[in-house]
Design a protein around this nucleic acid. Structure first.
Length: 466
RNA sequence: GGCGACAUCGCCAAGUGGUAAGGCCGCAGCCUGCAAAGCUGCUAUCCCCAGUUCGAAUCUGGGUGUCGCCUCCA
């Protein structure tokens, strides 16, 4: 397995801390709203990583957190009058529901910030004791970035303060402009706060990940985990700060490898809350099946930006259609073993920093080859069994192709419409038998107008939703 | 102002020194009553300039363009 490390900026062989084991932590969502396509893309990127590592027989531990205490959530509490728990529970459920629809495998541990307060408190206290963190008058606790000589080694983004015209707010209580809050003191009666030795308040954004990693992974003398992942926008400052506080608290580096997925763009612009062009997963799922959406969102390499548009989505749906069409030709049958060469080359592609494009090209080749052979020998049992096994292998590794093929082409068609289609097809077959082609074509036009495409085969007339 | 990424056929997209994968679209053909599906064939020299090299889309330097991070963000 080769992984592109976005800190070292090169592709490296994956050599885990403990041989054959892979410990992964990915930054999850702040749960104050529904999941958008960016969340989906991130989840899918790391889902492919986990599936690939599992296929390579690694013992994977995947941890992904929920940030369930934060300014935006508190704002929502104040606006809606609902409790923090009501809001976060709702959006966590919604998030998991959407990710399930996209075929994202369950994570091993999904810790919540509110359930990790002790771990955070002890890490902050540790940093205060070492005089790396400091408490200011308000009760806020800041991390002194000047105490970490390696600060900046993650994002490579520390300029001198003079020529740094960043938009970081000026806060006179900070010792250095780059210092960040580990703990925010309670801010009024309607704030949501927790008691600690240093002040009543709530955690800053970065500390939860560091604390959870220490809580849930054993680590080694050199690293806490193998892989730390997240969206590209988290590299700075979030991951820089996480790495720094962990380094200072534990005396070793946080992660051996860092992976960052690219953005989802809408019309060439980053999709973001502030631009108001967010696209919720639930809205996309109203129009497209989860598997179609998944197949589309994984079709571009995880590090590239992803330009979401309907035309490309339909293009990728056509590729999935082809897979299910060949599957229609081979069922019912029992799977044997996947083709060795096919399996090996797909694994090689995915082992190369998740090169999905090459993997999908191999899938096309496999489909084309199977169709070709079925054309000349439609009853080739061995081929059918192997092809089905190939598809089952793909379903396990890439997460698509697992549906029953006939129903795949009937998603979203109700029973009433189905029986109407069947009856029209019956009428058309009779017209055809009577060589009344004018009538049969009229019926086909009628069916086409319903959004259904017909295929006359030796096994009778098949239909698909267009 | 600081830091960084990317630029390959009409569109999407691989390729990281040895002479351009794959998909969509299009065209031609086979098959079909006609279609659809499937199959076969055809379609690029890689933003520009200079350099390194026997050889570069791939390395170096300089341009141009697009996007991102530095503020909550996947």
């Amino acid at each position: 397995m080769y992984i592109y490390d976005s800190v070292k900026k090169k592709k490296l062989p994956f050599e885990p801390i403990v041989p054959r084991k892979a410990s992964i932590y990915v930054c999850g969502p702040t749960v104050y709203d529904d999941a958008h396509l960016g969340h989906a893309r991130s989840s899918l990127s790391f889902d492919l990583l986990v599936r690939t590592l599992k296929a390579l027989r690694y013992d994977v531990t995947m941890v992904k957190n929920f940030t369930d205490i934060d300014d935006k959530i508190i704002k929502k509490v104040q606006e809606t009058g609902q409790s923090l728990e009501e809001i976060t529970t709702h959006y966590i459920e919604r998030y998991l529901e959407d990710m399930r629809a996209l075929g994202v495998q369950e994570n091993d541990i999904e810790p919540k910030a509110t359930e990790s307060l002790e771990a955070m408190e002890s890490m902050i206290q540790n940093l205060i004791d070492k005089d790396i963190a400091y408490v200011v008058n308000s009760g806020d606790v800041y991390f002194d970035t000047s105490k970490d000589t390696n600060y900046g080694s993650i994002s490579h983004q520390v300029g001198s303060d003079e020529n740094n015209q960043s938009r970081v707010e000026h806060n006179s209580q900070k010792r250095n402009p780059k210092d960040f809050a580990l703990w925010k003191a309670c801010n009024g009666d309607d704030d949501i706060c927790f008691d600690t030795a240093f002040s009543r308040g709530r955690p800053g954004w970065h500390i939860e990940c560091s604390a959870m990693i220490e809580k849930h992974f054993e680590g080694s003398d050199e690293y806490s985990i193998d892989i730390h992942g997240g969206g590209a926008d988290l590299l700075f400052p979030h991951h820089e700060n996480e790495a720094s506080q962990s380094r200072c608290a534990t005396g070793h580096e946080l992660a051996k490898y860092w992976m960052h997925n690219g953005f989802v763009n809408i019309n060439g612009e980053k999709m973001s809350k502030s631009l108001g062009n967010s696209f919720f997963v639930k809205d996309a799922l109203k129009v497209y099946d989860g598997e179609v959406l998944r197949n589309y969102l994984i079709s571009v390499h995880y590090r590239n930006d992803f330009n979401f548009n309907e035309e490309d989505l339909l293009n990728s749906k056509k590729r999935l259609d082809k897979l299910y069409r060949v599957k229609k030709r081979i069922v019912p049958t029992k799977a044997s073993k996947p083709n060795k060469k096919f399996q090996k080359s797909v694994m090689e592609a995915m082992s190369d920093d998740l090169n999905i494009s090459v993997a999908l090209a191999l899938v096309e080749e496999m489909i084309s080859d199977a169709n070709d052979k079925l054309d000349s020998n439609p009853k080739d049992k061995g081929l059918k069994k192997e092809t089905l096994a190939n598809i089952e292998f793909l379903d396990e590794l890439l997460g698509f192709g697992g549906k029953e093929p006939f129903s795949y082409f009937q998603i979203g068609i109700d029973e009433e419409t189905k029986s109407k289609i069947e009856s029209l097809i019956e009428q058309r077959s009779e017209a055809k038998k009577a060589k009344d082609y004018q009538k049969s074509d009229t019926i086909r036009d009628e069916i086409t107008a319903m959004g259904i495409s017909l295929m006359d085969t030796s096994d009778g007339t098949l239909w698909e939703k267009i």
